Amino acid sequence: MSTTLFVPRAGGIVTIHLHRNDLPDGIEFAPVVAVDTEAMGLNPNRDRLCLVQLSSGDGTAHLVQIIPAAHGGTDCPNLKRLLADPGTVKLFHFARFDVGLLQASLGITVAPIRCTKIAAKLTRTYTERQGLRELCRDLLGVEISKQQQTSDWGAADLTPEQLAYAASDVLHLHALWARLEGLLIREGRLDLAQSCFDFMPARARLDRLGYDLPDIFAH
């Protein structure tokens, strides 16, 4: 079952498609798809995946509400196929959390990936402001709200405010990556960033095994 919302924003209308259980058959995305998640909390070993947001960077967001099996949820085969597809680049902000949550929840390896937070940390060394809201403001001149960040994402019916917030987390990632990729090239760190991106699925598995603290790379 899918629902479509049209949300006004500066510069036009955002189209949000909400899908319950899985992506519909036949849907196509660009070779680079922006991805974000919402969960019941920040511990992937405890807190369940509730929502997966996707966008091709065209002003349209597809939101997949993950329904627990006890309430009629499915195995999300279309969503899993997209996230594991080696021919589709998945673009995240703070991929370490999202990739870990998706891999733990869906039993897949999420790759290949790019991460705007890693790119920002490798290039914007003059500031500690590397959050998505700060990057959108500093690099794109776009203000996004984080008001719904800590709301109940496990609710059966998500509010229009929640859906608009969730969509905003993927709608700007393509433009943000374009700016950050330019900075990586300028600073000669694009290859280093790519090495970090390639390692991310393994880093997420190490986190899942409890090697986040102490870090396995620490002395």
Rank of each mutant, 00 (worst) to 15 (best):
F29K: 09
R124D: 01
I66W: 10
I27N: 04
T15K: 11
T74V: 13
G11W: 08
V89F: 07
A167L: 04
L18K: 01
V170H: 08
D207G: 03
E161W: 05
V7G: 05
D169V: 00
R114A: 14
E128R: 04
T116E: 06
D215F: 12
H19C: 12
L5R: 07
G12V: 13
L184N: 01
R114L: 15
A34S: 15
L122T: 15
D212K: 15
L176R: 01
S145L: 02
G210R: 14
E187R: 14
L180Y: 10
L140R: 08
H62V: 05
V89K: 13
R96E: 06
G154P: 10
S145Y: 02
F197V: 05
G41S: 08
Q148Y: 14
Q162T: 03
G100V: 04
R186C: 03
P31R: 10
Q103C: 04
Q162E: 10
E128C: 01
E187L: 14
S105W: 12
R114Q: 10
R189T: 12
G72H: 14
F97H: 01
D75Y: 09
L190R: 14
G59A: 07
H93T: 00
L51D: 12
G100M: 11
C115E: 13
L139I: 01
L158W: 06
L190D: 03
L163R: 00
S145D: 07
Y126A: 05
D85C: 06
F97S: 02
V7H: 05
L192P: 06
F199D: 03
L49I: 11
R137V: 07
T4D: 10
H19G: 09
S56Y: 07
G154L: 15
E181G: 00
M200D: 04
P160T: 10
